[in-house]
């Protein structure tokens, strides 16, 4: 398998705080690599190191075969585009002027790509409107358009759906998929919205406390995640007590539903619940969610 980005034993220390503790990861070419981790796990730090915004304390980054200690890393970085936390756009300029600025920075001979990119991110009708007057979603899209200047082969997106409304999230998903499928751009994306990430990613990297705890493809995730049955009941508290007594793993999903990670004897369970005054309303087969898988992997209920 060909990898566009690899890291080996990457560490980053900020005075006494160690953000990355020997992180090793591999991003295959053509993948949409979902980067999953809690707040402070080191996702943004890794993206900053790859982009050259910060220097690693130790370890290696290999970008398109170029080591971060070699001068060739500068040429390799020309093949990436990135949106790190907030989009890097001039707020006092229009979308078109922002893209022209980026073309100049990249030393592109013409501004031919500008209109195409504006159309791609659906900002072609913004006219003279300055970026400071854009909505958050528009700014995110402009940030991606800026990152796409120069036809990058690898796109790094740090929480691109943060603060977006549901329509904005859908638009962003479609844009990322389009870039990946039509332009064959490898995408590394970190997101808190794991459900959203699971609709995009072809590969996952689960990070916890500055280390990659597991890397897997979407296919491997499909087979690795636990099967469950979703029970809809009249009293989830009674269900929880009963399942605890029976020693069965479960997760309460809402006021009346729970995912049960086993195949219990339904008759036995139904009887036990009836004794507690609880009825089973429905039983459906259900796959474990990415969120649940992540929690089972890293433990705890911290913010993913």
């Amino acid at each position: 398998m060909e990898y566009v980005l690899r890291t080996r034993g990457l560490t980053k220390k900020y005075r006494r705080f160690e953000a990355l503790k020997g992180l090793t990861m591999n991003v295959p070419k053509g993948a949409v690599y979902g980067f999953v981790g809690k707040n402070g796990a080191g996702k943004t730090t890794l993206i900053r190191l790859v982009c050259g915004l910060q220097l690693p304390t130790s370890g290696e980054i290999e970008l398109y075969g170029a080591d971060n200690k070699d001068k060739s890393i500068a040429a390799a970085r020309r093949r990436i585009g990135a949106v790190v936390e907030t989009p890097s756009v001039y707020l006092d300029m229009t979308a078109e002027d922002n893209l022209k600025q980026q073309c100049m920075i990249l030393g592109l001979p013409s501004f031919d790509c500008v209109y195409e990119l504006l159309k791609l991110v659906r900002l072609d009708n913004t006219g003279k409107k300055k970026a400071r007057n854009f909505s958050l979603g528009m700014r995110q899209r402009l940030g991606i358009a800026v990152a796409l200047c120069g036809d990058p082969d690898l796109l790094l997106l740090d929480e691109p759906t943060n603060g977006l409304d549901p329509q904005g999230i859908i638009d962003m998903r479609e844009l990322i998929l389009k870039l990946n499928r039509e332009r064959n751009i490898t995408v590394l994306i970190s997101s808190h919205i794991l459900d959203e990430l699971s609709r995009l990613a072809t590969h996952y990297g689960f990070i916890d406390d500055g280390r990659i705890v597991r890397e897997m493809s979407a296919e491997e995730f499909q087979s690795a995640r636990r099967k469950s049955i979703r029970l809809t009941v009249t009293d989830t508290a009674a269900l929880a007590r009963t399942l605890d007594k029976m020693g069965i793993g479960y997760e309460i999903i809402g006021e009346s539903a729970a995912d049960v990670y086993a195949c219990p004897n339904i008759t036995e369970l139904s009887g036990a619940l009836a004794e507690n005054g609880c009825e089973i309303l429905s039983v459906t087969e259900h796959d474990e969610s990415l969120e649940s898988f992540f929690i089972s992997l890293v433990g705890g209920n911290g913010n993913a």
Binding site: I80, A82, S88, Y90, I105
Partner: peptide, 16 residues
């Protein structure tokens, strides 16, 4: 403004 808008990052990401 390069720092406040984050546009300085773009130059480093562009390989300069």
């Amino acid at each position: 403004r390069e720092f406040s808008d984050g546009t300085l990052r773009g130059k480093l990401i562009a390989g300069h």
